[in-house]
């Protein structure tokens, strides 16, 4: 089960080490940790995607809360929030025909061409993590040589 957790933190040196150190030390299985800057340069918002049970998630929330720089923690499941992630996906394409096919298929899935090199096209998609999963599976099914990288999710919790 994956859980998405948001932490609002003071932007102090070392704060990201403290948070990431906690994951390693306590053996959490983290899918992503993204540090987001906010409009206030003194405040960062971290988005953590965790793989684990409900209890593990509650424990992580409590452990995050005891880090001095952590101002507040919320959980996506309990908070109205917007979630978004970015993916770059490359499709090897050597001939004009390959390129046209890749392009047409990618665009039908909503991907946007962002780089055209000699033997490869790179597409970009910004959407929910689930939508990225779907698009990636479809692209890789059609173009087995395709490869991708993802940014990890960021979220904006609509705190009351």
């Amino acid at each position: 089960m994956t859980h998405t957790i948001f932490a609002v933190v003071d932007n102090k040196p070392g704060v990201v080490s403290r948070v990431s150190g906690l994951f390693t030390r306590r053996g959490y299985n983290i899918e992503s940790l993204v540090t987001g800057v906010t409009d206030d340069p003194m405040i960062y918002k971290l988005t953590v995607v965790l793989n684990g049970t409900e209890e593990k998630k509650d424990l992580l929330v409590a452990q995050l809360q005891r880090i001095q720089e952590v101002i507040s923690v919320s959980v996506a499941e309990h908070t109205p929030c917007a979630l978004s992630e970015m993916m770059l996906l490359a499709v090897p394409a050597h001939t004009e025909e390959d390129r046209a096919q890749a392009r047409a298929f990618a665009e039908s899935l909503g991907l946007r061409l962002c780089l055209e090199a000699d033997a490869v096209l790179v597409f970009e998609l910004c959407d929910t993590p689930e939508a990225l999963d779907t698009a990636r599976s479809a692209m890789r099914a059609r173009f087995p040589g395709a490869y991708s990288v993802r940014s990890g999710a960021i979220g904006l919790a609509l705190d009351p």
Binding site: E55, D58, L59, A62, Q63, Q65, R66
Partner: peptide, 11 residues
């Protein structure tokens, strides 16, 4: 007093 101790080892 430390909420992170609750349900850590013993549920």
């Amino acid at each position: 007093t430390d909420a992170a101790e609750l349900n850590k080892r013993v549920l």
